[in-house]
Amino acid sequence: MGSLQDAIKKLQIKPGDRIKLKERDAHDKCGFDDQVRTEAETAIMAQEIDQLQDRLYAEGTRSLLIVLQGMDTAGKDGTIRGVFNTAGPVGVSVTAFKQPTENELAHDFLWRAHAACPRRGTVGIFNRSHYEDVLIAKVKSLAPKEAIEKRYDQVNDFERMLMENGTTILKFMLHISKKEQAERLQERLDNPKKHWKFNPGDLDDRKLWNEFEDAYETMLHRCSTKWAPWHVIPGDHKWVRNAAIASIVRATLEDMNPRYPAVSWKPSDFKIV
């Protein structure tokens, strides 16, 4: 178990670290060697996350924000299904950040993210996030360079404010290889049931693979903080991805140790008739 814990620990980016994604093995199994056993253990962890989330909801004083970022086909939807699908809908919210609306563009870039943050007692999941504004906005020059440069510190200050007001933050970059992405895109073309998932624009982004990697590396360097750390999760094996994220989320909730609130009455004082 020690080797597994060490492997999971290595996924976290320490504040100020500079990494090269090409040097990170997207095919790494992180100590999860047996797929069948790992998938069974992940299902158990998902149930434990649900139980911990129930305690968090009952406690009603803190929240957990989970940020999922990654290249196209990296598995953000699959992670949500595999790790959080067991959790009850009352205490878990999922926000998918798509192209900003006209109203969202009329506000500061963090406005829509702040509005979607989880309320006390709940777990919030961002499928993409405010980090789009230092990723796609940077690669495709959707904002002036000077504005994007300021956003790293603004994001860090925003997340610190959330932390100081009771929100624990976990950020996961789902790291897949270019080869794996090609296979997943091809599967969407080959399988009629997945045609709806295919977006021709994904091929345009694929041509900018190196530029996106550079943007991700800058993001990880500038925005992995002690109050909101980034984790780079090997994503070529979907079952490894889910197990690694489930392990970190469960451990974080256990450390938060939410408690059911005490009541001022005794159950024995009442009788149901």
Rank of each mutant, 00 (worst) to 15 (best):
I8H: 09
K9Q: 11
L11E: 05
Q12A: 15
D17F: 06
E23T: 12
D25A: 14
F32N: 03
D34P: 08
V36R: 11
E48P: 05
Q51R: 03
L52A: 02
E59C: 06
E59F: 07
E59R: 07
G60N: 08
L64F: 09
V67E: 07
T73P: 11
K76D: 06
G78R: 09
T79R: 09
R81K: 14
R81T: 10
T86P: 03
G91H: 10
V94N: 01
V94R: 01
T101Y: 00
A106K: 13
A116G: 00
A116Y: 01
C117A: 13
P118N: 04
R128W: 06
E132K: 00
K138Y: 11
K140H: 13
K140R: 15
L142R: 12
P144Y: 08
E146R: 13
K150N: 12
V155I: 15
T168V: 13
L170R: 03
F172K: 05
S177K: 04
E180C: 09
Q186S: 03
H195K: 04
D205V: 02
K207Y: 14
N210Q: 15
D214F: 00
T225N: 10
A228E: 04
V240R: 01
A243I: 11
A244R: 10
I245C: 02
S247Q: 00
N257W: 12
Y260P: 03
K266I: 00
S268H: 09
F270W: 06
